[in-house]
Amino acid sequence: MPSRSKADSSQSRSDAPPHVLESYPDQPIYSCLKCCATIALQDELISKAFSGRDGPGFLIHIATNVRLGKKEDRALMTGVHSVADVYCLGCNERIGWFYHKAADVSQKYKEGKYLLEKERLVKENMWTLDGDESW
């Protein structure tokens, strides 16, 4: 399991702690499509069955190299949630949102998690075929 540490709290404008990934040895990751900054380990994926603003989204436990925008109440498909947009630290691209609070008790499982938009990420497998190191 990679080690994680908290980044400087000045990078975030909300009460959710930003995370910085120190190492990710040979693990599949999700990176920012625009600048290739590491955003999340595949192991942090909870579900691919979510919708973002621009299409499919992933529910993720922990994201790294991100900053949060201003917290606001937003009417989403599953009800009103207190969320903050999530921006890549590398290029400042909006890549999803962070769930602070859910009004409906059935949606509480989303609190403290990230919705990352599939169209703004690239998955990097970080593997090679046996005997073929040229890839």
Rank of each mutant, 00 (worst) to 15 (best):
S3W: 04
R4W: 13
A7Q: 11
A7C: 10
S10Q: 11
S12K: 03
R13A: 13
D15G: 01
A16K: 06
P17F: 10
P17I: 06
P18G: 06
H19T: 00
L21D: 00
L21I: 01
E22H: 05
E22G: 02
D26C: 08
C32W: 06
L33W: 10
A37N: 15
T38V: 15
I39P: 04
I39A: 11
L41E: 13
E44S: 10
E44F: 07
I46L: 13
I46N: 01
K48Y: 05
F50Y: 13
S51Y: 14
D54I: 00
D54Y: 11
G55C: 03
H61R: 09
N65M: 03
V66A: 07
R67K: 10
E72Y: 05
A75E: 15
T78S: 15
T78K: 10
G79A: 12
V83H: 04
V86M: 06
Y87T: 04
L89Q: 14
C91V: 09
N92E: 15
N92L: 12
E93L: 08
R94E: 15
I95T: 02
I95P: 00
F98S: 05
H100M: 05
A103L: 12
K108H: 08
Y109V: 04
K110P: 00
G112W: 10
Y114H: 14
L115N: 15
L115E: 08
L116G: 06
L116T: 03
K118I: 06
L121C: 08
V122A: 14
E124N: 13
E124F: 15
E124M: 04
E124K: 14
N125M: 15
W127H: 08
D132G: 09
E133A: 14
S134C: 02
W135R: 14
